[in-house]
């Protein structure tokens, strides 16, 4: 029950944060040459949580993450799976313990992240809407 309350409180806080950033929703983008036009939420989760390592068209996918506890990263996971980043990290720690390696690339900031996606056709990542460029293709919009 305690944890449930905590989760509720966090959710409310997150919503507040989201509402603050409401003007600028997060978007999931791929290389503009990537044939994938649109992704469902489930496909997105499966890609980022390690279930699949390929796009629905069987093209290998390389998720691009931000390093550390970046606010955008926090917001993204909160939005996508409703979990704080710490739990997501714990998830990965456990998987790592059973010998499963994550096929992801980590970038220190949004600029590097965007650059990697532009440079790599298989990459997929998340950025605030305001940072979208011509070379990026939006496949999913969060915070809608």
């Amino acid at each position: 029950m305690g944890s449930f309350k905590q989760i509720a409180t966090l959710l409310i806080l997150a919503l507040l944060v989201i509402s603050v950033k409401a003007e600028e929703p997060l978007v999931v983008v791929v290389n503009k040459h990537n044939p994938v036009e649109k992704l469902s939420r489930t496909e997105l989760i499966d890609l980022f949580m390690g279930k699949y390592v390929a796009f629905p068209n069987d093209l290998k996918a390389i998720p691009v993450e931000l390093n550390g506890e970046h606010q955008i990263k926090v917001d993204f996971y909160q939005n996508l799976v409703g979990m704080p980043l710490s739990r997501v990290n714990a998830y990965w720690s456990r998987l790592r313990f059973t010998g499963r390696k994550r096929e992801a690339v980590f970038k220190p900031n949004e600029t590097d992240l965007i650059a990697f996606i532009i440079a790599n056709e298989q990459a997929i990542g998340y950025v605030p809407q305001s940072l979208i460029t011509e070379d990026l293709k939006v496949v999913y919009i969060l915070n809608e």
Partner: peptide, 17 residues
């Protein structure tokens, strides 16, 4: 939780565990 993860990922090792 572990079983869920194992099932979600179809991870045999985790399931065996």
């Amino acid at each position: 939780p572990t079983a869920s993860i194992a099932s979600y990922l179809d991870d045999e090792e985790l399931a065996k565990e």
